[in-house]
Computed example of a mutant assay.
Amino acid sequence: MPTPSSPTARRLWDISPPVHAGSPVFPGDTAYSQQWCATIGPGCPVNVSAITMSPHVGAHADAPLHYDAKGATIGDVSLDAFLGPCRVIHAIGCGTLITWEHIAHAVSSPLPQRVLVRTYEHMPVDRWDAQLAAYAPGTIERLADLGVLLVGIDTASIDPADSKTLDSHQVIRRRGLRVLENLVLDAVPEGDYELIALPLKLTTADASPVRAVLRAL
């Protein structure tokens, strides 16, 4: 059986930011906090903690419920879109919106059903970025036309931070796409990979944290 150091083992890229009390959150969201309910000591053999946080902290998958009052919870969403071949496309320094021109150079056929776009040279894991890059709605429409089932991004949202209409979220609602946000793609070359980013089966939640990784094909 291959070991992690054997020639046949496939390389992994961890594309999840660290999650802790200093993790940036969307303004108004609940930051990460943790308290100890039990600690190892006389009469107690274990450490047990309680965690409070928005499910949008760190790398996460949005559920339709997040942008549709009648949408499915994350626990009811099929896992198929979150596991399988994907393409990482670089659009570093693209500005506030990822247009088709920013990614067209890497949209060759056949296009995997999952597309992750890198916009940062270095993803700010320690601060909130109000000027984050987002997808232009038309870009998601064209990706959906090509059979894409999931879009991902290395920012906190596929819509601009100050958007009140969430136009790109409404495109994925209408077209039935899934979304991953807050990925760390700094060390990932452009190209094709296997994506593994499974959400928790949270039966009433509007999103879920994921431990997102890419594996070499």
Rank of each mutant, 00 (worst) to 15 (best):
A136W: 04
S33L: 09
R174C: 04
V171F: 13
E194P: 01
G191D: 02
T204G: 10
A9W: 10
V125Q: 14
I140Q: 05
H20I: 00
S163D: 12
V125H: 12
Y120E: 05
C37G: 12
I172Q: 09
D129I: 06
Q34I: 13
P137Y: 13
Y67W: 10
Q35W: 12
R114D: 04
L97K: 12
Q34T: 13
I98S: 06
P4D: 11
D162I: 03
G43D: 14
Q131Y: 13
A156R: 12
A133N: 06
S54D: 10
P199H: 06
C86R: 00
F26Y: 08
D80H: 06
G58E: 01
P137V: 13
R174M: 05
G28F: 12
T96F: 06
I89W: 00
D167I: 02
N182R: 09
S157Y: 12
T39M: 11
A61G: 05
G176H: 14
P24Y: 05
A31Y: 03
V57N: 01
I172E: 15
T165G: 01
A212C: 02
R215A: 14
G138M: 14
C86T: 09
P110Y: 05
P110T: 07
I158D: 05
P55L: 09
E190R: 05
R118W: 02
A133R: 04
T119R: 09
G58D: 05
S6L: 07
Y135P: 00
R10D: 09
Q113F: 06
T52H: 07
P4N: 07
A130K: 11
G176K: 12
Y67L: 00
